[in-house]
Simulated assay, not measured.
Amino acid sequence: MKLDDDIHNYYEHLVLEQIVRLELAQSKSEDYLADLCCLALNQLPTRYIRYEVDMAFYLPQSERQQMEMNAINAVKHGMAYLDNNKKKESE
């Protein structure tokens, strides 16, 4: 078993979904996106899984919705932090 291939944090998937939903790859650099992922994920609890289907099958809908909202808020806060620091650097 290779841990880096078999196990991952489910919140990674949710954060990336939000970044795609916001179409940030079209307007932000790779460095910005990497920093944003780190900032967002550091705000969230870990939820390790082996298979995506496990979460879809065993996770109650209300908990899934809460996790999605947590990821949305974490991305918003990460973006605000990065954008605020960029403004300070340009002043």
Rank of each mutant, 00 (worst) to 15 (best):
L14E: 10
N9A: 08
S90V: 10
M67L: 03
V53P: 02
S62G: 01
E89P: 02
V15N: 00
R47S: 09
N85Q: 12
L59W: 11
Q26T: 06
R50H: 10
L44F: 12
L3I: 07
N70W: 15
R21V: 07
D31S: 12
R47A: 08
V20G: 00
K28L: 00
L39Q: 09
N42T: 11
D54S: 13
M69A: 07
L16Y: 03
Q65R: 07
A71I: 04
A25V: 11
D5Q: 04
Y10V: 02
K76A: 05
V20C: 00
L39P: 03
A25M: 10
V53W: 15
C37W: 00
F57V: 14
I49R: 09
E68N: 02
N84H: 14
H13S: 08
D4Y: 04
Y11T: 04
N85R: 09
Q61V: 14
Q43C: 05
Y10I: 05
K87Q: 13
A71M: 03
N42G: 06
M79E: 15
N9W: 15
Y32C: 01
D31E: 13
E68T: 06
Q18H: 03
E91Y: 07
E63W: 06
N85P: 01
I7R: 06
A34W: 06
K87G: 00
K28T: 02
H77D: 14
E68Y: 04
Q26Y: 12
H13E: 14
Q18D: 09
Y81C: 09
Y11G: 01
R64T: 04
E30M: 03
H13F: 11
Y51V: 03
D31I: 08
C37I: 15
E52C: 08
L22G: 00
N85E: 10
A56M: 10
Q61A: 11
M79R: 15
V20K: 10
S29D: 04
T46H: 07
L14H: 05
S90P: 00
M1N: 05
Y11K: 06
Q65H: 06
E30T: 05
Q18C: 07
L39G: 13
L39A: 03
A80F: 14
D4T: 03
L14T: 10
E52R: 12
Q18P: 02
A71V: 02
S62E: 15
H8E: 13
K28Q: 13
D6R: 07
L33T: 08
K87Y: 11
P60W: 13
Q66R: 10
Q61C: 01
N70V: 00
Y51D: 07
F57H: 10
L41H: 04
